[in-house]
């Protein structure tokens, strides 16, 4: 799979990572190389093979749908770069 610069830019936009022109150029080659390398999986016949979901045959644990934690607003905002009264502050998103 050959990835072009426009695709690199589209992917970077989806991933919310700003990239420079120089990075876009370098990533074009690197991503193409990695994607070409993983293409060898096409040799493997996976018809009727289920995707792997667990190591040992056991059911995912379940619990009662009840509140088990909370009342820690101070903790939750403790590491935020910008807060106001237990709210995270972000640039205006609605005009």
């Amino acid at each position: 799979m050959q990835v072009d610069e426009a695709t690199v830019r589209r992917i970077a936009r989806l991933a919310r990572i700003r990239i420079t022109d120089e990075e876009a150029k370098a990533l074009e080659g690197e991503l193409s190389g990695i994607l070409a390398w993983v293409e060898q999986l096409d040799e493997v016949n996976t018809d009727n093979v289920p995707p792997m979901t667990r190591v040992a045959d056991m059911k995912l644990k379940k619990r009662e749908d009840v509140v088990t934690d909370g009342e820690k607003a101070d903790d939750i905002v403790a590491n935020a770069p910008l807060t106001e009264d237990h709210f995270f502050v972000v640039p205006k998103v609605v005009e």
């Binding site: 990835v3 690199v8 992917i11 989806l14 991933a15 990572i17 690197e30 991503l31 990695i34 994607l35």
Partner: peptide, 10 residues
């Protein structure tokens, strides 16, 4: 990390 996030996004 950027390289892997981008591969993963792709």
């Amino acid at each position: 990390v950027k390289r892997r996030v981008l591969i993963g996004t792709y």
